[in-house]
Amino acid sequence: MIRFFPIINLRSLNVSCLLSILMSISMGLLAPELKGQVFTDEFEQASGRELLEKVHNTHEQFPYVYEEQSMILIDRLGQKETRNLKRYSRVEQDGQASFLLVFDSPEDVKGVAVLARRNKLGETTQFIYLPAFSRSLIRNAGGASHSSFLGTDFSVENLIGEELDNYILERQRDSIIGGVEYFVVDVRNNNRKLRRHYILKDILFIARTEFFDELDQIYKCQTQHDLTPVLGDMWRANMLLMQDFRENHQTLIKINKRVFSADYVPTKVFTAEWLYENTIQAVELEMQTEESS
């Protein structure tokens, strides 16, 4: 199992360790330059699926991710609403995955959580926890995982990643936008094109995804910004922007802190009990209600 600790205590390191870290960092910095040509050549003839598998394998090397995020919702008038969240994700070796998003602020929604679990077959179940409602997980039974959630422009699928087996992946002609080269892959279901990924040729990173409606018109667009090398070929974006053109609304997610560590995302985090213990208790709120009434 690969573990990686981006927050390193320098005092505990010896010289050889330090050198190896420095090597890693310089490799990371140089990676795009060195790898760019390699990827371009290597995937010139690759299928869409091969490309996306490579993308996933390259950038999803760490199965345990903890993030502290700021989520900024921007409406058509440019008015902003900011939420702070914690995101936990964990992918098991057998392919099962868990995903948890917990609201830290605003105060009124503190403790609200979205829990998603994906089984070995790729089926996702979602739960919602509303501390103000009750001390129970509410199953979010309806709604496709591609529906936007909790007032954002993202769907759960956008945040936990798509299950490639569920789609038809079609390689399209490469594209150059603003002097930058991209591989282009369309994600389809049986009837129509759903998304189009623009993959940076040099680092094999999805920098832009366009979402299409039934009329084959783009209605949403996700772009990734502030790309940072993590280790080797692995990169991460520190900022994600989803624009919904139909609603004239945007959601910007800024990663304030990211830790790739199993310690930060233990299994118990994805349980109801942990949520009840670690978020505002519904009982407390009920008491507050009684006092105020």
């Binding site: 919702l73 409406d75 058509r76 008038l77 008015q79 902003k80 609403e81 605003p106 009124d108 929604v109 609200v112 509303l130 501390p131 103000a132 409602f133 936007s148 909790l150 007032g151 422009d153 609603e247 004239n248 609304h249 505002i280 709120l285 507050q288 209600t289 105020s292 009434s293």
Partner: peptide, 27 residues
Amino acid sequence: LPKTRQMVAQYLLFFHRSELESYVSHD
């Protein structure tokens, strides 16, 4: 109507802003 302010705020998470913008300002 929900009884508490928190309940109101948490229920409102189920609406996209575009569904509410005709009825309430962002603040």
